[in-house]
C-alpha cells in the first residue's frame, strides 16, 4: 500500500506477550493485503490480474470483495469516489487503493480488539482507527482516550483540530500532503484545490471513502453523506 503503518497500544495489558503477538498478527494482515492489492509490487495479485497473467478465480476472494466495495462506494457517493483510476497512458484501470487502506486497518483491528485491558490505535498514513477491549469503559473513569490532532492543511506546522476518541475511525483527505493525488471522476482531472475534509465514524473503510468523496464531490455527494452515512460526521478545513 506504499506507506508504513504504526500500531500503538495503551493500558495495563499493553506490555504482554499476547499483545505483542496480536500486533504481529495485525501487521501480517497488512502484509497480506499488500501482497494482494499493491499497485507498486509487480507480483501483487492486482498487478498480475491487470497483466492477464492470472484470472479472478485465482485471486484472493478479497479482490472480488474489493470490486464489490468499489462499486458500492461509487454508487453511494454518487460517483465522487471511484476505483477506476487513470493509469497515466489515457486508460482507466481498476485501482482499489483508495479503499484498501481503510479496509486493511479495519481487518487488522480484529487482532487487537480482544486484548484484555488494551486500548489501541492503528495509524496508516494519517488515517487511523482507535478501539479498546469491550470491558474497558468508553467514557469516564478508567477509559482511555486518544487525542487525535488534525493537521491544518494551510499551515502544516499547526494542529487545526483535536478529536478525543476512545473508539472509532478518523480519515482526512486533502491535497496538502502529497500534492494533487485525488482524482475527480466527473471532470477526469486531478483535484488541486486546497484544504482537507476529515470524516469520523465507526469504520475506517467508510470514513476514508467518504473523506475522499466529500473532498472531490459536490453538493449532491454532501447531501448523500448527510442522509445515508449513519454514524459518520465530517468537517472541512
Amino acid at each position: 500500500m506504499g506507506m508504513p503503518v504504526s500500531i500503538h497500544l495503551r493500558g495495563d495489558g499493553a506490555d504482554t506477550t499476547r499483545s505483542a503477538q496480536a500486533v504481529q498478527a495485525a501487521f501480517e494482515t497488512f502484509r497480506e493485503m499488500d501482497d494482494i492489492f499493491s499497485t507498486y509490487r509487480p507480483q501483487s495479485q492486482l498487478r498480475r490480474l491487470r497483466r492477464d497473467e492470472i484470472g479472478l478465480e485465482a485471486c484472493s476472494p478479497l479482490l472480488v470483495d474489493s470490486m464489490a466495495l468499489g462499486e458500492l462506494a461509487a454508487r453511494v457517493t454518487l460517483g465522487a469516489f471511484t476505483t477506476l483510476l487513470p493509469t497515466g497512458d489515457g486508460d482507466l484501470a481498476f485501482d482499489p487503493t483508495g479503499l484498501v487502506k481503510g479496509w486493511a486497518v479495519d481487518l487488522a483491528c480484529g487482532h487487537l480488539s480482544d486484548l484484555p485491558g488494551v486500548s489501541w490505535c492503528i495509524n496508516a498514513g494519517g488515517d487511523l482507527r482507535v478501539g479498546a477491549h469491550p470491558d474497558l469503559p468508553r467514557h469516564g473513569p478508567g477509559s482511555i482516550t486518544w487525542q487525535v490532532g488534525v493537521e491544518d492543511p494551510g499551515d502544516r506546522t499547526r494542529v487545526a483540530r483535536a478529536i478525543a476518541l476512545s473508539e472509532g475511525a478518523v480519515a482526512t483527505s486533502g491535497t496538502a500532503a502529497r500534492g494533487a493525488h485525488l482524482y475527480d471522476p466527473s471532470t477526469d482531472w486531478m483535484v488541486d484545490r486546497a484544504g482537507s475534509v476529515t470524516v469520523t465514524g465507526p469504520t475506517l473503510l467508510w470514513a476514508d471513502i467518504w473523506a475522499t468523496a466529500l473532498f472531490v464531490g459536490g453538493l449532491p455527494t454532501r447531501e448523500a453523506f448527510e442522509a445515508q452515512a449513519v454514524g459518520y460526521a465530517s468537517f472541512t478545513l
Binding site: 500503538h8 490505535c121 494519517g126 487511523l128 487525542q147 490532532g149 494542529v159 478518523v170 476529515t198
Partner: peptide
C-alpha cells in the same frame, strides 16, 4: 516539533499527512 510537544500537549496521534508522517513515526 511535535515529538517534544507531545509529552505536554494534548495530541496522541495525527490525522492528515499521508506517507511522510508515517515514515517519521516508524
Amino acid at each position: 516539533g511535535e515529538v517534544i510537544d507531545a509529552q505536554s500537549a494534548q495530541i496522541d496521534v495525527m490525522s492528515g499527512a499521508t506517507v511522510t508522517w508515517e515514515g517519521y513515526t516508524q
